[in-house]
C-alpha cells in the first residue's frame, strides 16, 4: 500500500512565513492539490499580490509573476490573452482586490477573462499591519479605525462575491471558507470547479474564501475562528452566487 497522504507536487519544501492560525497555508495547499489533480502544473502561472501572500511563489512549484498592488487581474488578462493555453490564477487579499484593485477585478470579470481568482477575505490589511480594509466589519477595530469601523464615515463592508455576480457576463462566483475542517472540503470543490471552468475555456471564475487573521485581529487562533464564525459568516454568506450553466 502506498502513501495515502503526501505533500502536493505543486508545493515546495519551503516553510511558510505565515502566522500561527493564518489560513493562507490551508488555501495554498488546496490550490496545490487541485493543480496536481488536474495535472496542470507544467502550464500554470500564478500571480501573487501585494499583501501577506506576496511571497507565495516561494511555496508553489510552478511559474509565478508578482503583481503590483491590486493589478493582478490585469496581469492575468495580459497572460491569458497572449497565451490562452496557460492556466492562470491570481491570489489576492481583500485590500488588494476590493480596494486598490477594484477597477481591475471588475473589468476582468466583466470581460469574462478566462482565469481564476482566489480571493482571501479576512476583513483586514495584513502585511501593512492591520489597517482597515473595505471588508472590515462595522465596529471592528483596526489600526486605522481604533474606535471601530464607523459606517457613517466609510460605509458598509463590500461584499465582493455579490457585487461581481451582479455582472451580466457569464462567470463562476462563489464564497466559501476554510476556518474549520468541515468547510474545507467544499472550499476545495469550489476551487477545483473554478480551475475546471478555466480549463474548459468557459468563463471567469472567482472563489472568495472567508479567512482568519488572528495577529491583526488581536485574537488567539481559536478565538479568531469563533469570531469569524459569529461575525463574518452571517454577513459574508457562503454559497454559489453565480454559475456558468
Amino acid at each position: 500500500m502506498g502513501k495515502t497522504f503526501k505533500k502536493p507536487e505543486a508545493l515546495t519544501d519551503e516553510h511558510t512565513h505565515y502566522c500561527p492560525g493564518c489560513t493562507h497555508g490551508v488555501i495554498h495547499r488546496l490550490v496545490a492539490e487541485v493543480i496536481d489533480e488536474l495535472g496542470i502544473r507544467g502550464r500554470t502561472v500564478g500571480i501573487s499580490p501585494v499583501g501577506c501572500a506576496v511571497l507565495a511563489y516561494n511555496y508553489f512549484s510552478f511559474d509565478f509573476q508578482e503583481a503590483a498592488h491590486g493589478r493582478a487581474p490585469a496581469m492575468a488578462t495580459g497572460i491569458k490573452r497572449v497565451r490562452p493555453d496557460l492556466i492562470v490564477f491570481t491570489y489576492q487579499g481583500d485590500g488588494d482586490l476590493a480596494s486598490i484593485g477594484m477597477g481591475e477585478i471588475i473589468h476582468a470579470a466583466n470581460r469574462g477573462e478566462k482565469f481564476t481568482t482566489i480571493f482571501v477575505n479576512n476583513a483586514v490589511y495584513g502585511m501593512t499591519g492591520g489597517q482597515m480594509a473595505p471588508t472590515t466589519m462595522p465596529g471592528q477595530r483596526t489600526t486605522t479605525c481604533p474606535l471601530g469601523r464607523n459606517v457613517e464615515e466609510v460605509g458598509m463592508p463590500i461584499k465582493m462575491a455579490e457585487l461581481l455576480s451582479s455582472l451580466e457576463t457569464r462567470g463562476y462566483i462563489t464564497r466559501q471558507t476554510v476556518i474549520k475542517p468541515k468547510y474545507i472540503i467544499k472550499a476545495k470543490e469550489a476551487i477545483k470547479k473554478a480551475f475546471t471552468y478555466q480549463l474548459e475555456g468557459r468563463c471567469f471564475s472567482l472563489v472568495e474564501l472567508v479567512s482568519t487573521c488572528p495577529t491583526n485581529w488581536g485574537l488567539t487562533p481559536v478565538e479568531a475562528v469563533k469570531w469569524a464564525e459569529e461575525t463574518l459568516l452571517p454577513y459574508y454568506k457562503l454559497g454559489e452566487y453565480k454559475t456558468p450553466e
Binding site: D63, R71, M75, G78, I79, R83, G103
Partner: peptide, 25 residues
C-alpha cells in the same frame, strides 16, 4: 491580440503579464 483596457493603469499590467510570459507586446 487586440484589447481595449479599462484604463492605462490596467494596460501597463496587461503588458507586464504578456511580456512576463515571453511574448512580444
Amino acid at each position: 491580440v487586440f484589447l481595449q483596457a479599462e484604463s492605462e493603469v490596467a494596460v501597463s499590467y496587461m503588458i507586464f503579464g504578456a511580456a512576463g510570459c515571453g511574448e512580444r507586446i
